[in-house]
């Protein structure tokens, strides 16, 4: 979301190895904090800008492959194209922005930070979400928020089949249609606290024009928390 500083340092994956670039970005935080970097010619390479742990701004100028910005901490990573499977997987904090679409398992197991996807996300978006926020401008595929434990997912478009299957305590907000809900996922009445969470996320992600009331909230019915003998057949 930031304007790119003119002093951004350029990396070019046609000329440099990805390992060299990632190792540079893993340098001493004191030397990196506040700096801007661009990565040219990503050409779908895997694991671009993974494991960052300082206050850097990294812009990937094209399509990224698998696991881009995985395990991110503090850093702000923008992908100007699409992202392959597992973008921002296991993110701890920071901000990852995909301007195109994201493939399967976007934000899988992410603990903190914000993942913003302008386009659609594939299947299993936010699978096993552990506390991060995910905002998807388009639609998400089937089995999204599967076993999500904590955090928030905001979906401006539609959701596929089995949304929130076996969900624990995460919140899901969907503006469009949901094809089907997974086991133990139900519609919730949006209380003031949830509305604030949603409103804050819409502001943070550039969607302040949308009213929280236009979303439906989904969450856990909490019937799968404990063993119940009547459910024995289903286990």
């Amino acid at each position: 979301m930031e304007n790119l500083s003119m002093e951004a340092q350029r990396f070019d994956l046609n000329k440099q190895s990805l390992r060299e670039v990632n190792q540079f970005l893993h340098g001493d935080a004191a030397n990196l904090n506040g700096k801007f970097f661009t990565i040219e010619n990503p050409n779908g390479a895997h694991s671009i800008a993974v494991g960052l742990n300082s206050d850097v701004h990294v812009t990937i100028k094209g399509h990224a492959g698998y696991y881009a910005a995985g395990m991110n901490q503090i850093a702000k990573v923008t992908i100007e194209g699409s992202a392959g499977s597992g973008v921002a997987e296991n993110m701890m904090s920071g901000f990852v922005h995909v301007k195109g679409f994201a493939s399967n398992a976007a934000g899988a197991t992410a603990n903190g930070g914000l993942l913003l996807i302008d386009g659609d996300a594939g299947l299993r978006c936010g699978i096993s979400l552990k506390g991060a926020d995910i905002v998807v401008g388009g639609s998400v595929g089937s089995f999204s928020a599967f076993m999500a434990q904590a955090g928030n997912m905001v979906i401006l478009g539609d959701a596929g089949e089995g949304l929130g299957d076996s969900i624990y305590e995460a919140n899901i907000f969907v503006r469009g249609k949901v094809k089907s809900l997974g086991a133990d996922c139900e519609v919730k009445v949006m209380d003031a606290e949830s509305k604030k969470i949603l409103s804050d996320l819409l502001h943070k992600s550039g969607h302040a024009d949308l009213k929280p009331e236009s979303f439906t909230q989904y969450g856990s019915a909490r019937t799968l928390y404990h063993f119940h003998v009547d459910n024995a057949g289903a286990y």
């Binding site: 050409n43 779908g44 399509h63 492959g65 699409s82 392959g84 679409f101």
Partner: peptide, 20 residues
Amino acid sequence: EFRSLAHLPDIKNAKVFEPS
């Protein structure tokens, strides 16, 4: 994967998408 398409001529102006 996209890495097999990156070299194609004028790929920047192609419509790139993931099949459902």
